[in-house]
Amino acid sequence: MKKLLALAALIGPSLLAAEPLRVVTSIPDHAALVRAIGGGEVETESIIKGNRDVHAVELLPSFMVKVGRADLYVKVGMDLDLWAQSIIDGSRNGKLIVVDASAGVEKLEVPTFKVDASYGDLHIYGNPHYWLDPGTIRAQGEAIFAGLVRVRPASAATFRANLDAYVQKVDAALKGWQARLAPFAGTQVISFHTSWPYFAQRFGIQVVDFMEPKPGVSPTPTHIAALTERLKGGQVKAILMESYFDDRVPQMLSRTTGVPLVKVPVLVGAAPGVDDQLALFEAITTSLATALGGGH
């Protein structure tokens, strides 16, 4: 009997631990981060898959089913994925723990004035595209780590070790990306959407204008005409665009002005081979460095 009890004591926790912790995230980048922290103890899925616009997601019943089975949901936060709350509500999951991955991130472009729709899709808590800065992965990871530990406190040490190891790996890669983009510090680019303040701050790139006249507002002929004149001035060295946008207008602008178009994925999974965060930043850095003339 004692032997049986001892065996049960030995096997019991490992059987419990074998049950994976289910995490759903709004964006695949956070799913990748959860996998890095949770290792084999998590099963992760993202609501957004592939080359999509995070700002607008249609609420499918299959999303509710996914979240209904989950232990943890990771939101982008800062009012970017407002749709996530409807999915969480629709999941009917009363035990779900919700994590805001932006919680510890130092926010940029926080409006100091009353925001309304005349400014376009401006977010009152600041620009929410923080995941495009590899330097914020520690802060994002800490928020996710805290959520994972709430669900499975017994694995805190493993999650902590995994997070530290992952951040070290990203930091090492970051030095390489910074070195490759260092020659272009201060270089002026325009971007399609206001996705790049965190990235630009990290790598010293200057985003001086946008294809969208206001955030979320499609390019207008008048605005494109003004941009054409600006690009012909020679100061702007690249048009940086998120791959989920239609590239016909940026292509035309690039052909007209000779300024190279750099179309890059902004989410993990948005391009072939971009299967994790390291691959995403590698793809962005390589495309930008090549277009700006470095080719490193």
Binding site: P61, S62, M64, V65, K66, G68, R69, G90, R92
Partner: peptide, 12 residues
């Protein structure tokens, strides 16, 4: 109302 998952399908 309730929702019953059937694989990736949802029965409401």
């Amino acid at each position: 109302n309730t929702q019953i998952p059937i694989g990736s399908a949802a029965l409401t």
